[in-house]
């Protein structure tokens, strides 16, 4: 993350200098900072609502029930998380909301999942394998029906805006498999490296 962050800023400043876009770069700096805070504030409303709902579901034992139902899948994805742990229920709700395209609901559930995973974390500043797997899976875009893309296609006058759905589902499934395999391999590699370092 350190390297990528520096690369983004470094490339921006060099490119801004070479192409004479420095004023744009400077403006973008401050407007992006403002946008970031607006985004964070914008999340608060939905987050408060769904975290409240999540607690009700938790107190009613629904989150645990969900975790239990999905146990076979989660044993493979998150082997370090104890069975029936509330983290698994939150993860299930996050995946469910993402698949249905309910982004506003998905984020609070995902944050709840991260908080639950953090309770299992011995080193609070460093991500666990379960966290890495969970976040990486998001990169495969879990959404089944890409509503946003279909709307864009329709707006552009496509004869059949939803004809790309099958392809999208295929590509999402493939990248999901890659996400799982790559995360597991990295986890193993990091574990080996740590062992070698300790010895």
């Amino acid at each position: 993350m350190n390297i990528v962050w520096l690369l983004l800023i470094g490339a921006a400043v060099i490119s801004g200098a070479v192409k004479g876009h420095m004023a744009d770069v400077s403006n973008a700096m401050f407007s992006s900072a403002t946008t970031a805070i607006e985004l964070a504030i914008g999340l608060v409303g939905g987050m408060t609502l769904f975290l409240g709902l999540m607690r009700v579901a938790d107190d009613a034992g629904l989150v645990k029930l969900l975790a239990r139902a999905l146990r076979p899948v989660f044993r493979v994805l998150f082997p370090d998380v104890p069975r029936d742990h509330p983290a698994l229920g939150a993860i299930a709700m996050n995946f469910g909301a993402n698949m249905l395209g309910l982004g506003d609901a998905a984020t609070p559930f995902g944050i709840k999942a991260m908080e639950e995973l953090q309770t299992l974390n011995p080193d609070k500043e460093s991500a666990t394998d379960a966290m890495c797997m969970f976040v990486t899976l998001h990169s495969s875009s879990l959404q089944i029906i890409p509503v946003m893309v279909i709307s864009l296609r329709a707006a552009a006058g496509s004869k059949n805006p939803s004809e790309t759905i099958v392809g999208t589902i295929f590509a999402t499934a493939m990248s999901m498999i890659v996400a799982i395999v790559v995360s597991r391999l990295f986890a193993r590699w990091f574990a080996l490296r740590k062992k070698a370092g300790a010895a």
Binding site: M1, M131, V135, V178, A179, F186
Partner: peptide
């Protein structure tokens, strides 16, 4: 958003794995 919510700064291999994905 997700790592920020739990104040985890060291994300280890998440970025690499995500970009490969």
């Amino acid at each position: 958003v997700y790592f920020g919510a739990v104040a985890v700064r060291k994300t280890r291999y998440t970025l690499a794995a995500s970009l490969i994905t």
